[in-house]
C-alpha cells in the first residue's frame, strides 16, 4: 500500500491523461461519422466501434480515478472534467437517435441543413479535443482554443435559432413537436455540453496555473 502511495501515483496520472484525451476525441469522430452516414445514407459500422470505445474509456477512467487519490483538488477537478465529457458523449448519441427517429417526419431541405451542421459540430468536437490535449501540454494554447470553441459555438447556435417562430404575442418560441426543433435542440445541448467542457478546462487552468 505504501509503495503504491509513494510510486504508483504518476503512472495512474499518465493513464488518466491518455484516457481523457482519447475520450475527448470521440465526439468529433462520432459527428464526422454521423455526417457521412446521413449524407450518403449508408449505415456506418463506425458508431458501434465508437460507442464501444467510449464505454471502454469511461470504464477505464472511472477505475483509474478510483485508484487515484480522489480527495485532492486536482483529482476532483479531473473528475469534474470527466463528468462533463460524459455529458458530451451522452448527448451526441441522443442526436443520432433523434435523427433516426425523425428522418421520415422532417422536410428534406431542413434535414440537409441539419446534416451540414453536423460537420461543424464535428469540427467543434475537434477543438474540444485540442483543448483537452493542451490542458496537459500548454495552458496558453488551451485558452486560445477556448476562444475558438466559443466563437464556433455561437456561429452554429445562431444557425440553429432560425427554427424559431414568433407566436401571437410576438414572443420568440420553438415548436417542440417539430422534428427539426427536436433535432436542433439535441445538437444545441451537445454544443452546450462541449462548452461546459471548455469552461471546466479554463477553471482548471485558473486554479492550477502558477503565478510568480
Amino acid at each position: 500500500m505504501v509503495y503504491r502511495e509513494l510510486l504508483g501515483r504518476r503512472l495512474i496520472d499518465k493513464k488518466i491523461e491518455r484516457n481523457l484525451k482519447e475520450l475527448s476525441l470521440i465526439p468529433s469522430k462520432y459527428f464526422e461519422a454521423l455526417y457521412i452516414e446521413r449524407r450518403t445514407e449508408i449505415i456506418s459500422p463506425v458508431f458501434d466501434l465508437l460507442e464501444e470505445e467510449e464505454k471502454e474509456k469511461r470504464g477505464e477512467l472511472i477505475e483509474l480515478l478510483k485508484e487515484g487519490i480522489v480527495d485532492t483538488k486536482i483529482e476532483i477537478a479531473k473528475y469534474g472534467l470527466y463528468e462533463r465529457m460524459v455529458d458530451v458523449t451522452s448527448s451526441m448519441k441522443e442526436v443520432r437517435i433523434l435523427m433516426t427517429e425523425n428522418v421520415e417526419r422532417i422536410k428534406d431541405e431542413e434535414y440537409k441543413e441539419l446534416v451540414n451542421i453536423l460537420k461543424d459540430v464535428s469540427k467543434l468536437g475537434k477543438i474540444m479535443f485540442q483543448m483537452v490535449e493542451n490542458l496537459y501540454k500548454d495552458y496558453n494554447v488551451a485558452l486560445e482554443k477556448f476562444g475558438e470553441l466559443k466563437n464556433s459555438s455561437e456561429i452554429i447556435i445562431n444557425s440553429i435559432t432560425q427554427f424559431r417562430f414568433l407566436d401571437d404575442k410576438m414572443i420568440t418560441r420553438y415548436n417542440l413537436e417539430d422534428p427539426k426543433v427536436l433535432i436542433s435542440n439535441g445538437i444545441r445541448e451537445c454544443i452546450q455540453s462541449m462548452m461546459n467542457v471548455g469552461e471546466k478546462i479554463v477553471e482548471i487552468i485558473e486554479e492550477f496555473k502558477f503565478n510568480s
Partner: peptide, 26 residues
C-alpha cells in the same frame, strides 16, 4: 513559484512537479 511559473506549462508539467515535490517532501 517563480521557477514553476516559468517551467510548468500544462497539467502534465504540474503533475510532474507534484511528483517531484512529493518525493522531496518525503
Amino acid at each position: 513559484n517563480k521557477i514553476l511559473s516559468k517551467t510548468v506549462k500544462g497539467l502534465s508539467g504540474l503533475e510532474t512537479s507534484n511528483a517531484i515535490s512529493g518525493s522531496l517532501l518525503l
